[in-house]
Every structure is written in structure tokens, then in C-alpha cells.
Nucleic acid binder design. Structure first.
Lengths: 217, 217
DNA sequence: GTCTATACCAGGATAGAC
DNA sequence: GTCTATCCTGGTATAGAC
């Protein structure tokens, strides 16, 4: 890992805990194990470190959605024809597995967690940061899930309903869980238990009437 | 308004926008219209201003719940027998009106909004602040609504289901809306429209089967 | 209770040797 | 590319007159 990368990594950790202003260049240098002056061989100033973190780590976020077979166009995530068809054939188990991926990305991926904390505490200082915070924290997820649920409703996997409100109902509890447990990694299993209850409850409320056997609802 | 109160008010505004470290004592003094040195006649130091804001404004939060006829015991909000009985007789319109109170308190009450922003951006620096952030942002609301929905389910106003997951389903979209629209007061009506859609959707999914007429679901 | 003046220090950043 | 040494600014806080 190059010195430059180590600087970015340590700075992300510190900024995500205390915010830009409360972290000094001295703090970052100490964490990396070099002198302050040496930092300036890698970055023009403190702000440049911060900007690089956003630019270089925010891209990682897109990789989650590409794993979920999403086509990103102009930063607007839409689901293409073939993907819709694929989602239309999804079983409940496959859906739950995908939900688990989303959940773990939100609460366990260290870089995602730190980046979102950083954006959370810096969001009110700058409109660009606010926009990035929103996109990464919920907008991309909501847009993706609205398309997904739309496809699954058309395929009869869920009863007919408003896909946008359905996505909100599905995602916002996960969003809240992040704030409830995001600062306590040691309670992750507790968070996962609530998540599982949420998913079960969601199926109970939104599942299509069972095709053969008695009512699930 | 005393000088002391003006200091607290201006400091809350500044801290909620930029955070503790990014706001200088000079900034606060300028906003109040006095010299820095004069501040020290009212508060021992910058930290004392911050602490006083939390102590004195956080109490306001309780007043929302007392308006909703809640009995607070040991900081734990529970609904007493008589109140449960009262909620059991609530109509859907009364329920919606109460939801609107909650929604406006979240997005429009200036002190609540600023205080929550402040807690949002300072939460990772101190466990006490984290606890206060959680309580004020969602825990009190979720605890209250779990009790409320429990009473309403028993009264037959909603179909039988897990009241805790129901409270999460009801509240977490409002929580998310705060982050989506909290920094743009000019888009409040847009937020309200989403809120209304959410409430309608919620009734559609959770409402008891209509007693007489055709199905709502 | 507010002012002017000032002490003091921490933090950002640069120069220049190695 | 890292170091030592140093500069300078801006921020916290105090002293003491009015």
C-alpha cells in the first residue's frame, strides 16, 4: 500500500470519526507514521486529501449496484429490459439473499460505513457533499428497488401496489438500522435479527396471496 | 431575550450548520453582536455553550410527547392504561392528524430541526451525544408508536400484526424524509406530499378489513 | 456586563538539507 | 520522498478599564 493510499485510508478513518475540522494534519501524519511536512509531497493541502477521499472512494459504491446487475446511465440507475426479466423470475429466497447483500454493504463494508459516516457529518457544509450523501445513503437504493419491485409486481411475485412506496417501506427501516447500530459493530448480530424480522414482516404484508395453500397474511 | 439566550440561540444555529469545531467563539460573538470577551461573562468557555444547548433544548423534545398524552417515566416513554383506552377509540382521521403533528415536529419545528442536525453531525464524537441523537431522532418515536399500535390492534383498528415492525414501517420513512428534505425547507410541500402518500399506503397495507363496504386493499 | 488589549498556543503550510 | 526548522494565522481565553 503506497504512502498516498495509506494517507487516504487513515484520513478517512479520522474524518469519519471527528469530521474535517476536528482532524489536524498532524493527526493524519501521526496515524500514517510520517511527519506533517511529508504529507505535502502527496497532497497540496488538507482539503485536497478530503476531496480525494470523496472522489476515489465514492466510486466503490457503484460496484455494489453492478454486482446487482444494474445498468448505470448518467448517474441515474435504471434496470434494463433483460434485468427486469431476470428479476421477474426471482424466488423469494433469491430476493432475500439480495436484501442480505444490501444490508451487509450498509452495515459491514468498512469503507462504505466510514464514507457514509463522513458524509453524514459533513453534509450540511456543502451542497455537493449533501447530494453525494443522499445518493449514497438512500437515493440509489430507492431508485433501484422501485424498478425492482415494479418488475416483481408485474411478474406476480408481489401483490399489486405502489412500487415507490413499497421500496420506501422496504428500505427505510434498513436506513434507520444504520443509525441505530452503525456505531456499534459489536452489536451487528442484534441488528441482523431486527433486519430478519423486518424482511419476514415485509413478505407478510406485501407477498402475493399464496398460489395454492392457505393464507399467509 | 437575554444575552445568554441569544448566545445559545445563535450558537445552536451555527453549530447545526458547521459543527462544534468549525464554529469559532468569534463567529458566535459576531452573530450575537457582542465582542468575544463578553461571551465569557455568560459561559466559562466554548464547550460550556455547547453543553448548555444540549441540556436546555433537549427538554423541548419531551413536550411533543406530552402533547400526545404520553407518560414519561425514567426517560422511558410508556403509554398508561387510560391513554391506551383513549387510543383504542381513535378514528383513522384522528390517527392521521397525530401523524401530521409528528411529521411537522420533525421537519418544521426550527429548534427541533437544528438540534437534530447538531446531534447528527456530532454523534460520532461522544457516546452521550450518540445516545441523545438516537433517542431524539427515532427511539422515543418508535417506543411510543409501538405502544400506540399495540393498543390500536387490540381495539381492532388495525389487523393483527407485530406492533414493533409496524411502528418501524410507519416511522422509518418519516425518518428518511428528514434527511432527504431536512436541508431544503423550501421543498417542504413536496416532502408533505410524499408523507401523505406514505400514510395512505400504510393504511392500505395495515388497515383492518373494512367492516361493511368493499375492500380497500 | 461590555469593551480594548493582549497572552498564548495549535494548526496549516513552506524552505531547504539529506 | 522524508526529515528538521520555522513562519504565520487564527482561535481560545484572560486582564483590567469603563
Amino acid at each position: 500500500m503506497s504512502t498516498r493510499e495509506r494517507i487516504l485510508s487513515e484520513a478517512l478513518t479520522l474524518f469519519s470519526q471527528r469530521g474535517f475540522d476536528a482532524v489536524s494534519v498532524r493527526d493524519i501524519a501521526r496515524a500514517v507514521g510520517i511527519k506533517e511536512a511529508s504529507l505535502y509531497n502527496h497532497f497540496a493541502n488538507k482539503q485536497a486529501i478530503f476531496d480525494s477521499i470523496l472522489r476515489e472512494y465514492a466510486d466503490r459504491w457503484g460496484s455494489l449496484f453492478s454486482r446487482l446487475q444494474l445498468t448505470g446511465e448518467d448517474g441515474q440507475f435504471t434496470v434494463d429490459e433483460r434485468t427486469v426479466a431476470m428479476y421477474g423470475q426471482m424466488t423469494r429466497e433469491q430476493f432475500n439473499a439480495m436484501a442480505a447483500v444490501l444490508f451487509e454493504a450498509y452495515l459491514k463494508d468498512n469503507i462504505n460505513v466510514k464514507l457514509r459516516k463522513l458524509l453524514t457529518i459533513e453534509q450540511y457544509r456543502n451542497p455537493d457533499i449533501a447530494a453525494l450523501f443522499k445518493r449514497l445513503s438512500f437515493e440509489d437504493s430507492l431508485t433501484f428497488q422501485t424498478a425492482l419491485f415494479g418488475a416483481m409486481i408485474r411478474a406476480g411475485l408481489f401483490g399489486p401496489t405502489d412500487p415507490q412506496m413499497m421500496a420506501l417501506a422496504f428500505f427505510s427501516p434498513i436506513f434507520l438500522l444504520f443509525y441505530q447500530y452503525g456505531d456499534q459493530p459489536e452489536r451487528f448480530e442484534e441488528a441482523r435479527a431486527v433486519f430478519t424480522r423486518h424482511i419476514d414482516h415485509f413478505h407478510e404484508k406485501y407477498g402475493a396471496p399464496a398460489p395454492k395453500k392457505g393464507s399467509t397474511l
